[in-house]
């Protein structure tokens, strides 16, 4: 096949690097640095593509292994909510295992959030078809729901309602954080008293796919402006726009 974006043959070192990337021997920081370049350099993408094509038959020569029966239901759950952005992964706070759990359970949580929003008959509708109000259920490590976060349709206001009473350790406080999207830094939304609170003006618009998290901080809040304590609760913000859209056919 002829590819108009075929790599320039005059950069052999880069082409070998692309080969190593596809081969899988480029790991860790080297791999991430290469992927960052890949995003910017079409020539490099073409080189990677050529290597992927060269090695493709080997990738297909693996003897099949049946995945566990639980995997397909998990995929269906993950796909259940509409327009749910991919949950943030380790890139945000690498050390916190909670993020991985969050990614696994995002689908089920979305369903739960919709159900809770419906049960509470929250006066969310401030009219206007779009944008829609968003909700998030904040769960603990054991995936128990503890807080419900409700946003107005404009995504400027957020209300936190306690679903069960949780108190921070003595002398400490809960602090609420908003991660607006993948790769975004956590922004403090202030301390969170056990009875809940409303935040009238969010520093950034709350969009579906954003993450809310609660950490344990000193009584006066994080001294650094970034989370310093463990994440005890977190949840992904989802849109409350009813059942998933029917597939177009």
């Amino acid at each position: 096949m002829t590819d108009p974006r075929a790599p320039e043959p005059d950069d052999p070192a880069l082409d070998v690097l692309a080969g190593e990337y596809v081969l899988g021997t480029l790991r860790g920081a080297e791999r991430q640095a290469f992927e960052a370049r890949l995003a910017r350099e079409p020539t490099l993408r073409a080189q990677v593509r050529a290597w992927e094509d060269r090695f493709a038959p080997l990738g297909l020569a693996v003897a099949p292994v049946a995945p566990p029966a639980t995997l397909w239901p998990a995929i269906e759950r993950a796909l259940a909510p509409p327009a749910l952005a991919p949950a943030p992964r380790a890139r945000l706070w690498d050390s916190v295992a909670l993020w991985r759990n969050l990614a696994f359970g995002a689908g089920a949580l979305a369903v739960l959030a919709l159900a809770i929003a419906g049960l509470l008959t929250v006066p969310l509708a401030e009219r206007g078809p779009t944008p829609r109000p968003a909700v998030a259920v904040l769960v603990d490590d054991a995936r128990q729901a503890a807080w419900l976060a409700l946003a107005n349709p404009a995504g400027t206001r957020l209300e936190l309602r306690a679903l069960k009473t949780l108190a921070p350790p003595a002398g400490r406080a809960f602090e609420l954080w908003l991660i607006a999207g993948p790769g975004e830094p956590p922004r403090s939304l202030g301390l969170l008293p056990p009875e809940g609170r409303a935040i009238e003006q969010l520093p950034v618009l709350l969009r579906p796919g954003a993450t809310l998290a609660i950490t344990v901080e000193p009584a006066s809040g994080s001294p650094t402006g970034a989370p310093t304590g463990p994440v005890v609760l977190s949840g992904t913000v989802i849109a409350t726009d009813g059942p998933p859209p029917r597939p177009a056919s």
Partner: peptide, 24 residues
């Protein structure tokens, strides 16, 4: 495709739980 992709993922990750996450 899943048996095939799962086999690939298991070979690279060498952990069934991570391979499942990959395929998902």
């Amino acid at each position: 495709a899943a048996p095939h992709l799962f086999a690939l993922a298991v070979r690279i990750t060498r952990q069934s739980s991570i391979a499942e996450e990959v395929v998902q």
